[in-house]
Design a protein around this nucleic acid. Structure first.
Length: 221
DNA sequence: CGGTCGATTGTCT
DNA sequence: GACAATCGACCGC
């Protein structure tokens, strides 16, 4: 297995994303080695990247304390907490000073499955172990507090070593469609920037985003 | 297996 | 002070 080349990540995440399908993210910690083969990813743009603003991106307004990893050297992991309880993992793309990234949404456990089963006790079957961004982060033991900014190209931080290997063999047909959980009717919300391997059972189900418009109003009185 | 509902906290307006 | 790149409990089939 050979590491993904950093130069290949210094490009627009929309172009990088489909090329990461079949790649393997390996995390070594005190628990042991866990590796996941990517089956589903999504691209996001920072301000200034692409022709239209990406209203669903954390970097849509420019650099902030939270999203600074996305503006740094490509190949580092932007790990953030969402909904107050789930972590999600992205690979920073675009040259330093510009922001785009690939959200790692799902994959197949190819090493350390016993470790992952212990971390993911609520999974009903093995295809659910890393099915969805929060589950994916949990399966690999990555968290926003400890691992945001770690170099995915053989970096060490927060008690883990991270490696991102290029796809090792043939990858199934790549499909694309709207990003999951992204709300709104703006053009940027309907962009087909979710990519997945066709017929891969570890790919998550599409869910439309919940907005103030379609969310149930709070009970009053 | 699939639908619905509510949790929970960091972040930015 | 609203709201989020979601998940799991719970329930029905």
């Amino acid at each position: 297995m050979r590491l993904v080349e950093r130069s290949s990540l210094a490009a627009d995440a929309v172009d990088v994303a489909p090329l990461l399908l079949g790649a393997v993210l390996r995390v070594t910690s005190d628990d042991g080695v866990v590796a996941v083969r990517l089956s589903e990813v999504e691209a996001y743009h920072g301000r200034g990247t692409g022709e239209v603003p990406d209203l669903a991106s954390h970097a849509r307004m420019g650099p902030t304390q939270r999203n600074r990893t996305m503006w740094g050297e490509p190949g580092h992991l932007y790990v953030y907490m969402n909904y107050g309880m789930h972590d999600a993992v992205n690979v920073a793309c675009s040259p330093e000073g510009r922001a785009s990234g690939v959200l790692l949404r799902a994959g197949e456990i190819v090493d350390g499955i016993e470790i992952v089963r212990a971390r993911r006790l609520t999974a009903r079957r093995d295809t659910e172990l890393a099915q969805g961004p929060g589950r994916f982060a949990r399966a690999l033991g990555l968290s926003s507090k400890r691992h945001d900014g770690v170099d995915a190209l053989d970096g060490t931080q927060g008690g883990v070593r991270v490696e991102l290997f290029a796809p090792g063999g043939p990858v199934g047909a790549v499909r694309s469609g709207p990003r999951t959980g992204v709300a709104g009717d703006e053009a940027s919300c309907a962009l087909p920037w979710r990519f997945w391997i066709e017929d891969d059972p570890t790919v998550s189900r599409f869910r439309p985003g919940r907005t103030a418009a379609n969310r149930r109003p709070p009970v009053t009185g």
